[in-house]
Design a protein around this nucleic acid. Structure first.
Lengths: 200, 200, 200, 200
DNA sequence: ATTTAACCGAGACGGTACGTCTAGTCTTGAT
DNA sequence: ATCAAGACTAGACGTACCGTCTCGGTTAAAT
């Protein structure tokens, strides 16, 4: 368990802060998330361990901080008027992120760690997953108003249909996320699985 | 990685084997998966650590072995002729499993551990996830032949639609898996999100 | 080694100075010399750590400063004309000091620390031990002139005989310094151990 | 604070044990007692830190164990029939020990550490100081029976006279222990400080 | 009266070692 | 040969202090 009492953020050393984030980025690429220890970060950043423990509760929290700006920028949500295309684009961006040697493995590791770290789970949710879901739902609402999407669908369930498969494949490794996957899943989610009666 | 050389399974002590699995079950309930160490299992089972390392590569593998029979039995796939009802039943079973104090937390932990343990990932896939997916796809194939489900859907994508949401909610904790969720997601997946042109 | 450059004693804060000494006295009684850290003194005195480091090189030096006036006053050397009685008095005073809950434990601690801190050793010597020895030797010189003590004895060796036992018992804990010890050791030192030939 | 529960000495690794003592001896010479850490000993001995903590409560205890055989052998007490000569020899041996670069500094350090470590103090007493004192007193008893030493002297006080000065000089550094010191102090202790009335 | 230089309280910083913990391997004696 | 037991090497953990270093705020002398 970290931290004694809350330190004063006003007196935080900018140099140490950025050195830690830079070293973290470096070490994830070099040795991988799992092999990277807090001691290694401290040593690589030229920083005392306490300085890390003072500001972050865990290795995962450091990685998350190092991460979030890039991820946010890379997952900007488009609105071209074509719902299918927009979600395909978004899922493709998620796929690309998951294949980046910096982000992919450590996203996996962060989600893994969040399974036994409530605080981290909350942070991941607030900073990564929830904003993405919110954007997606917003896009669907627009599509509902444009009468492209049914008005009675539960938007959370819709997000499950559109995004759930990505996480299932990414985390369970039950199938690879291939280049044509984004379009396939979006089309299927929009069209549904059921056979329609032929129109007479 | 453990194990000396492959031991002789014929000489394996049945007493030790069952004691280990029983102690594992006990300790997961008592102290939780994460706090449970291999040393604790050995001690609780009255067994040498080496005996565990001899037959399993990791704590997770022990848990998986202890688990699989129960899970298989609890996730039997029904075929009542009603596709929607069958998948709803199946997802509801997954939900219940995930809320069981023995299975839920350790399923999470196992998936977490599989993120940095290829061998475990493979084992989980082969013994838990893939069989479930295969049953689901089989059921869909039957539904296709009954002309209930479209013949052109990619069955893997269909599984993503139906099951992906569960994992997304379970692992990302982005929303709880409530009692009415299984039906909602199945209905949405079957119907699709898109608005249909009114039939004239 | 502390201190930047020598600070200006004229501008020293009297308030901080006395607060530090008072807190030190307090904390030694409360938590004992060893558990007391410079951080604790600073905090208890409501003073910055730097203010301590500015004026003292070590925790031991602070304690010594807090100490010396009391010790000096308590170890005043008497001259009643009776050498034996005077040294007995002096050693008894040392004994009492060593049993005082403030001085005893921290005298031990200071001597201990002086074993690996040359500067402290010198300071202890100059301010505590050497003055005491000088007084003792002075008293012996007077006794020599009064033809009570042999003129050929090495006064430093004499001090070893008279005082050495006290430190041996105090530091090695080889035997307690009891109430009758001072007289016993003084008598023995004066008389010597050797058997005299009976005068004819 | 060390050790959980007492380990089984029968299963102790002889290799690790001797490697630790050898590394300790080596490091004291190399870097000095104070700079030597338990981590350094472990690393130099090719041993886990836990193995040291399992068998010894502190660095000092390791040094003591490494030490005692040599010290015992070097401080064998002679009996030549000449009390003065015998004690002179013994004190000279103590002096030489105290000037040995292996033993001197670490004897100082051990005594220092014993000031705040009761268990160590007891161990030092039992294994180093008390046996020496016992030998000295035994020698004095023999001298008493040979009617060389007065029958009424308290032998503990006699030991203070003979040995106390050594520790006073060694620990307080109030004066060096020179080559002629042993004889001087023994002579003075035997003869006493008091002036005798001239025999008529 | 204002400037200016020091000390002051506070506490973040780079370090180092601590003693604990767990992993996975190795050793021993009993079955 | 397998087993229970547990000592072993290895090394990260999070903590505690060390002594140094800002940072504003407050004196007190020098202007």
């Amino acid at each position: 368990m970290p931290n004694d009492r809350s330190p004063d953020p006003a007196r935080r050393s900018e140099r140490a802060h950025t050195a830690i984030l830079a070293a973290t980025r470096e070490l994830i690429m070099t040795m991988g998330y799992d092999a990277m220890t807090i001691e290694a970060i401290a040593s690589a950043a030229g920083v005392g361990k306490q300085t890390i423990y003072r500001w972050w509760p865990s290795k995962a929290a450091v990685v998350l901080d190092m991460w979030v700006p890039d991820v946010e920028q890379q997952l900007a949500f488009p609105d071209t008027g074509d719902v299918a295309a927009d979600f395909t684009t978004q899922i493709r961006a998620m796929m690309e992120l998951s294949q980046d040697p910096l982000f992919g493995p450590s996203l996996r590791a962060l989600i893994a760690e969040a399974q036994h770290d409530q605080a981290l789970a909350q942070k991941l949710l607030d900073r990564i997953f929830a904003p993405r879901a919110e954007q997606g739902k917003e896009r669907l609402r627009a599509a509902q108003q444009a009468r492209q999407v049914r008005g009675d669908v539960d938007l959370d369930v819709a997000m499950d249909l559109l995004y759930g498969g990505f996480y299932r494949r990414f985390l369970l490794r039950i199938a690879p996320v291939t280049a044509d996957y984004p379009k396939a899943v979006v089309d299927a989610a929009l069209a549904g699985l059921m056979r329609r009666r032929t129109r007479r």
